[in-house]
Amino acid sequence: MHVEKKLFRNDIILFAAVVFVSLLVYFAFSFNSDSEKNIVEVQYYGKIIAEISLLQDGEYRINESGYTVEVKNGKMTVSYTDCKDKVCTGMLIDENGGEIICVPNKIVIRRETQSSNHNADVSAG
């Protein structure tokens, strides 16, 4: 591969800069988690439909297509999804944080935030 040295150097500099800035932003935002520890909320089409405690083991079915999450030993993982790309099966929520997002199913599961309203009294189970 023949690329002018100056251009090659610029490419690498740009690459290093993008990675550096991205990781900086990532770590800057990952430290300010002031949310409650053990309750997660389930959003479906942007609305909170359930709250689940991470202290209780169990399986929770979220929508009619059978999307199911499992809570075990304080960890929440996805146990069934009907979507094709299975991106969300690699996501988990535990005491260190994290969230589960399934774009095809329009599901977002994350820590309860202080800004969210607490009117949701529906509980899955």
């Binding site: 990675v19 959003q43 969230e99 774009v103 977002v108 994350r110």
Partner: peptide, 17 residues
């Protein structure tokens, strides 16, 4: 836009890198 939640943007830095 699809999930109607901005929490997805949390993945943007990792995805960019």
């Amino acid at each position: 836009f699809v999930v109607s939640d901005t929490v997805v943007f949390g993945y943007l830095p990792l995805l960019c890198a």
